[in-house]
Simulated scan of single mutants.
Amino acid sequence: MTASPDPRALDRTLDALARQPFRARFRLRGRDRATAELKGPATIRWHAYDLIARRLAPARPHKDGKQTPYRGHPVFVAQHATATCCRGCLERWHGIPKGRELTRAEHMYVVDVICRWIEREMTGGTPGGPGPARPG
C-alpha cells in the first residue's frame, strides 16, 4: 500500500490550481454539496476511487477530454477544480503522462487530490479554515 501524500503538498497544488480563473470558479453547491454531506468522506473517497478507475485510469479513456460532467456528483466538480478531469489536464497539471494506464500510486494520488479539495470545500475552502464554504 502506498502512503498518502503530505496534506501540505496537496494544499500547495490546490492553491496553485485555485489561482487559475477556470478552476477557481468551481464550488460545491446545491445537490453536490448535499451529497458530500450526506454520504460522508469515506463513501465519497470510495466513489472517487471507482469513478477514476472507470473514467480516467485507462490508457485511453472513452471520450477523453469530455468524459467528466460538470455537475451530478461532488467528485465531478472536484475533478474540474483540481485538473483531474481528463488525461490532458492530468498530464499538464500533475505530470502524469497520457497513453498508459495509471499506476496504483497515481490512482491513489488523484483520489487524494480530489478528496482534499472536497474536504477544503466542506470546511471553508482553505486548509483548516473555519466556517462554511464561501457562498456562490
Rank of each mutant, 00 (worst) to 15 (best):
Leu38Gln: 07
Thr123Lys: 02
Cys115Thr: 13
Leu14Gly: 00
Arg23Val: 11
Ala78Glu: 07
Arg29His: 13
Gly124Thr: 01
Arg134Ala: 15
Thr13Asn: 02
Ile44Ala: 08
Arg8His: 11
Ala42Ile: 13
Leu28Trp: 00
Pro74Arg: 05
Ala81Ile: 03
His73Gln: 10
Tyr70Phe: 14
Pro41Val: 08
Met122Thr: 08
Thr82Ser: 09
Arg116Ser: 03
Gly125Lys: 03
His80Lys: 02
Arg19Val: 05
His47Tyr: 12
Gln20Ser: 14
Thr35Lys: 08
Phe76Cys: 06
Gly131Leu: 09
Ile96Trp: 04
Gln20Tyr: 09
Ala48Phe: 08
Trp117His: 03
Cys89Tyr: 01
Gly125Asp: 03
Arg71Ala: 15
Ile118Thr: 04
Lys66Ser: 14
Pro58Met: 11
Gly72Ser: 13
Thr82Met: 02
Ala78Ile: 08
Thr82Glu: 04
Pro7Asp: 05
Arg31Ala: 15
Glu101Phe: 11
Phe22Ser: 10
Val77Cys: 06
Gly128Pro: 02
Ala57Lys: 03
His73Thr: 10
Met108Lys: 04
Gly65Tyr: 08
Arg25Ile: 08
Asp15Arg: 02
Phe26Asn: 01
Met108Asn: 06
Arg19Glu: 15
Arg92Trp: 07
Pro5Asp: 10
Phe26Asp: 01
Gln79Ala: 15
Gly95Asp: 06
Thr43Phe: 07
Gly40Arg: 06
Leu14Lys: 00
Tyr70Asp: 12
Lys63His: 12
Arg45Ile: 04
Ala9Met: 05
Pro41Phe: 06
Ala59Met: 04
Met108Gln: 10
Tyr109His: 03
Ala53Asp: 04
Tyr109Glu: 00
Ala9Ile: 09
Arg134Thr: 15
Arg19Tyr: 06
Ser4Ala: 15
Gly136Cys: 14
His80Ala: 06
Pro61Met: 01
Phe26Lys: 01
Arg116Lys: 08
Val75Lys: 00
Gly131Phe: 12
Arg19Phe: 08
Asp64Ile: 08
His94Gln: 05
Arg45Phe: 09
Ala42Lys: 09
His47Gln: 13
Arg33Val: 11
Thr123Pro: 00
Pro127Asn: 11
Ala53Ser: 09
His62Ile: 14
Gly88Trp: 02
Gln67Pro: 04
Lys39Arg: 15
Trp46Phe: 15
Pro7Gln: 09
Gly128Arg: 05
His80Pro: 00
Ala42Ser: 14
Arg92Tyr: 10
Asp11Ser: 11
Tyr70Val: 15
Cys85Asp: 02
Ala78Phe: 11
Arg104Pro: 01
Phe26Met: 10
Glu121Thr: 06
Glu101Trp: 09
Ala36Gly: 11
Pro69Arg: 06
Pro135Ile: 14
Thr2Gly: 08
Phe22Pro: 02
Arg12Gly: 10
Ala24Pro: 02
Thr123Val: 06
Pro58Asp: 08
Arg23Asn: 14
Gln67Ser: 14
Pro130Gly: 12
Gly65Pro: 05
Thr68Pro: 00
Ala24Asn: 05
Gly72Asp: 12
Arg33Tyr: 11
Ala133Gly: 15
Ala81Tyr: 00
Arg25Pro: 00
Ala48Ser: 11
Ala59Arg: 03
Leu90Pro: 00
Gly99Lys: 06
Gly99Tyr: 10
Ala57Gln: 02
Pro41Leu: 07
